[in-house]
Design a protein around this nucleic acid. Structure first.
Lengths: 155, 155
DNA sequence: ATCGATGCAAAGCGTTTGCAGGGGT
DNA sequence: ACCCCTGCAAACGCTTTGCATCGAT
């Protein structure tokens, strides 16, 4: 975990902004949800529910793991976070909900955001006629998920 | 599930070929492993362990779900299949182990292979200087996973 | 005051494991 | 004959749920 530095979209969200987003989605603002959200935003790579739980306990010692899971689900529902599947092992949570790409370290399993914009025309770059060709075969493509894999070496 | 039509790489594998691949990886040939492999190859979209179990029971009625899981793990180890993560819900199994792309139907959750070659130069097409730029930020990219999403409408 | 959120414990689901007996080499 | 594999059942890890109480509006 690192301190929030304002690099990530949601990180600048003040408590008031978080409250507005939650209420806009029909949820109440609670300190548990705020703590979970702040944990996600200050993490340098996308944590698991258990990692969020351990981190948040230093702020709210008696929070329960079930509450962490419910808070994460609430944040996802309010489009304040996204849930990322993991082939083996627990899911990871990302405080960005906009379309973007991820990097997965094959050595540690860590998942990070890539400083790379979502490219709506990726398929055209692969092959300009691709989407039409796929549609003729029954595949109606509305988006894509790209994950780069390798290893991460902090500099 | 559909009948094997020979379109998929592993589908032409005779029992003898399957035996050779298993033994090359240090495993024995058993009818349970053969039945599980045949089920994967004849499926029109990548099944879950439970779906394999239900399908294989018509061939080996007393097979256990644990054996199906072990057979799938064995096939993955022998590079005769691959395991695909699912955001929510069980994993899916693919009788191809070469790098290729998938299509995920957002309505049914079904996953299919795409008739699309793996493009090693995808990142260069996104941006020729991308890999170098990422490496300077600590991301050492060795491959990528691309999944197209949308809905599938059989024609 | 109302009604949603929390914390706890128990249940749930997909998957893995331990083990005695059966089957492949 | 050896030892791996199977089938059964129990355990497992991650996640969700039921419920009484607490807290936000």
């Amino acid at each position: 975990m690192r301190q929030a530095t304002g690099e990530k979209p949601n990180c600048e969200a003040t408590e008031a902004q978080l409250r507005r987003s939650l209420e806009a989605a029909g949820w109440r603002f609670t300190k548990q949800r705020a703590a979970v959200f702040n944990c996600l935003c200050s993490a340098d790579c996308h944590p698991t529910a258990e990692q969020v739980y351990q981190a948040v306990r230093s702020v709210i010692p008696n929070i329960s793991l079930a509450t962490v899971y419910k808070a994460l689900e609430t944040l996802v529902d309010a489009h304040l976070a996204a849930k990322l599947a993991d082939a083996d092992g627990p899911a990871r949570y990302d405080c960005r909900s906009d379309a973007h790409y991820h990097f997965r370290c094959l050595e540690t399993g860590q998942v990070r955001d890539l400083p790379l914009p979502y490219d709506e025309h990726l398929l055209d770059k692969l092959d300009p006629a691709l989407v039409d060709s796929l549609r003729r075969q029954g595949f109606h493509v509305t988006g894509h998920r790209l994950e780069l894999v390798g290893h991460y070496q902090n500099v």
